[in-house]
């Protein structure tokens, strides 16, 4: 499976099991985020450790997911973002918009 999820301390931890996150997956991933309704209001931590390459389409899906979560009074955080992917967040200034943590434990502690 490309995505898997578990609930830890009332936070949904989503593992993105993709080495390339691009246009090919962006629509499916957006739908997956929209359909993640296990916790209300939604609190999502996205583990991105497997992603080596990401394009702007996938970052667009992340933005859509964030807007959806915020509209429901929830929170969303990203963890384990590699340097190439972080460059994309910095170029789009989205590193100032997303909550980005080094570890999932840290992110879950902040969101729980």
């Amino acid at each position: 499976m490309d995505y898997s999820k578990s609930i830890i301390n009332n936070v949904v931890l989503i593992n993105i099991n993709l080495s390339e996150a691009s246009l090919n997956q962006s629509e499916d991933f957006k739908k997956f985020l929209y359909d993640t309704t296990e916790v209300t209001p939604p609190k999502l931590v996205l583990d991105m450790s497997e992603i080596q390459y990401m394009d702007s389409s996938f970052i667009g899906a992340l933005v859509a997911g964030l807007k959806n979560v915020l509209s429901k009074g929830g929170e969303m955080a990203l963890v384990n973002v590699n340097t190439d992917v972080m460059a994309l967040f910095e170029l789009t200034r989205l590193d100032k918009v997303f909550k980005i943590y080094d570890t999932k434990e840290e992110a879950i502690e902040e969101l729980k």
């Binding site: 702007s56 915020l70 170029l91 989205l94």
Partner: peptide
């Protein structure tokens, strides 16, 4: 200067901007 005033106004397309920034 890129300054997003509200998360709800965030664009969901960035391709051309990313290329130019690089």
């Amino acid at each position: 200067e890129i300054d997003y005033l509200s998360a709800h106004e965030l664009p969901e397309n960035f391709g051309l901007m990313v290329i130019k920034q690089c």
